[in-house]
Amino acid sequence: MDDFYRDYILDHYRHPRNFGHLDRVDVQAEDSNPLCGDRLRIELALDETGRVQDVRFWGQGCAISQASTSMLTERVKGLTLEEVARLSKDIVLENMGIGISPTRMKCALLGLRVLKSAAIGEIAEWPDES
């Protein structure tokens, strides 16, 4: 697990991309991880064709949840809400680039769950953790 904390993970943890709030928010969602009390909010702004034009996230949490959300926000611009809703956990695992232990999987997937919740307008299921 400790080779997990690679430089790019720490970089995203300490300097999260797309962190903060948008002036104009079209859809948004917020959730927390009851295990650790991590809180996360994601805001999306859409262009006239309904594609994600801009994204911000805000919250506090461990390096895994913060870095995975930061990296996720870098890959959502240009997607339609339907495409966002269909995202699988693979995009997160691919971003993180290393195996995540079962006990920390919820940390890694919290950002994706909140993002999908914003897209579908209700709290999404946890992405398949297996």
């Binding site: 697990m1 400790d2 295990l35 650790c36 461990c62 895994i64 232990s101």
Partner: peptide, 27 residues
């Protein structure tokens, strides 16, 4: 430092050390 308690617990776990991290049921 700025290491989240859960990250700390994960690193300690790789050394065989079991500690609790989180809000300890005292939110």
């Amino acid at each position: 430092g700025d290491i989240h308690a859960h990250d700390l617990a994960s690193i300690l776990d790789t050394d065989g050390i079991c500690i609790r991290a989180g809000h300890h049921c005292t939110m």
